[in-house]
């Protein structure tokens, strides 16, 4: 049942895309509405759910050189093993690591510190490529954790001065213009109502824009049929900014996710989603 529905949906989205390119600008809003409708229809067979299930297994099973499970060792900020509501309350400060961490970075930290995996092995291929059959394990784990914050409000603990400082640094990173084309994050994401080609650009400095920026991650991307995290989205933005590549699970990416997610505080997270 799941497969034909996804295929049908793919056809719908493909023809939507073609119509999109041929029609005038006025149809842009209509196409957006169509996609929103399609996304809603997909909700009961969201491919992201497959990876939530995979992630749940990975969370519970004893793994790694130390043969422990994340469920019995990993604290996402609300107590060891507690995943309910953890995603919408990250990034947050973790005293054991003395660092502010977003969800993905925190899970990686647990895999390294608690389970004994090597960071370099995880960082070698952290995101699913177009030719990969499956996303890396870390993506499924993030999707599982994110799924357990579905329908909860974003609540990044910005009152914590350590989190606030990273938020400020994230804000400054969005201002930083450099590289051959003088681009910063804000060249595209610093004002309202802009587009690149037909792609709407959320203004991540505003609450409304930040909500658009964080919603739907981690997400199943129709283009290429891959499951990707919000960390990946930051990585690909820097590519398009003509910057070199941010190191995996680095402070720069955490700072941007802190800035954007905290700006979305109060909005209800809809869970792992579907992206074009």
């Amino acid at each position: 049942m799941r497969k034909p529905r996804i295929l049908g949906a793919l056809c719908a989205i493909t023809s939507l895309g073609i119509a999109h390119a041929q029609t005038a600008e006025v149809d842009h809003a209509k196409a957006d509405a169509e996609f929103a409708k399609f996304r809603a229809e997909m909700e009961d067979s969201n491919p992201a759910e497959l990876f939530e299930l995979k992630g749940e297994e990975l969370w519970k099973v004893k793994r790694g050189p130390k043969s422990v499970s994340l469920a019995e060792s990993c604290d996402l900020g609300l107590g060891v093993g507690k995943v309910e509501g953890a995603y919408v309350q990250m990034p947050r400060y973790f005293a054991d690591a003395n660092a502010v961490m977003d969800a993905e970075r925190r899970i990686v930290w647990c895999m390294v510190e608690k389970q004994g995996f090597k960071f370099a092995d995880i960082a070698k291929k952290p995101f699913q490529g177009a030719n990969d059959t499956n996303p890396p394990e870390i993506t499924s784990l993030v999707t599982f954790v994110a799924g357990h914050s579905r329908n909860m409000k974003f609540a990044v603990p910005l009152k914590d001065p350590k989190v606030k400082e990273i938020w400020e640094i994230g804000k400054e990173i969005t201002n930083y213009r450099a590289g051959p084309y003088d681009f910063s994050c804000n060249t595209c994401h610093g004002s309202d109502g802009k587009r690149i080609r037909m792609q709407n650009l959320p203004n991540i400095g505003t609450h409304e824009g930040a909500v658009k920026g964080v919603m739907g991650w981690p997400g199943y991307r129709m283009t290429g049929g891959v499951m990707l995290t919000h960390q990946w989205r930051m990585n690909d933005c820097f590519r398009q900014q003509r910057f070199p590549e941010p190191k995996y699970a680095s402070d720069t990416v955490t700072a941007l996710l802190t800035y954007m997610t905290a700006n979305a505080n109060g909005a209800v997270y809809k869970g792992p989603g579907i992206k074009r």
């Binding site: 400082e165 400054e172 990173i173 201002n175 070199p244 941010p246 680095s250 402070d251």
Partner: peptide, 20 residues
Amino acid sequence: YRGKAIETIKRDFQPRGQAD
């Protein structure tokens, strides 16, 4: 914060392809 942002950026990137 700008100073810290620049320090953070300088630390956190790696060359890839033509992007040094």
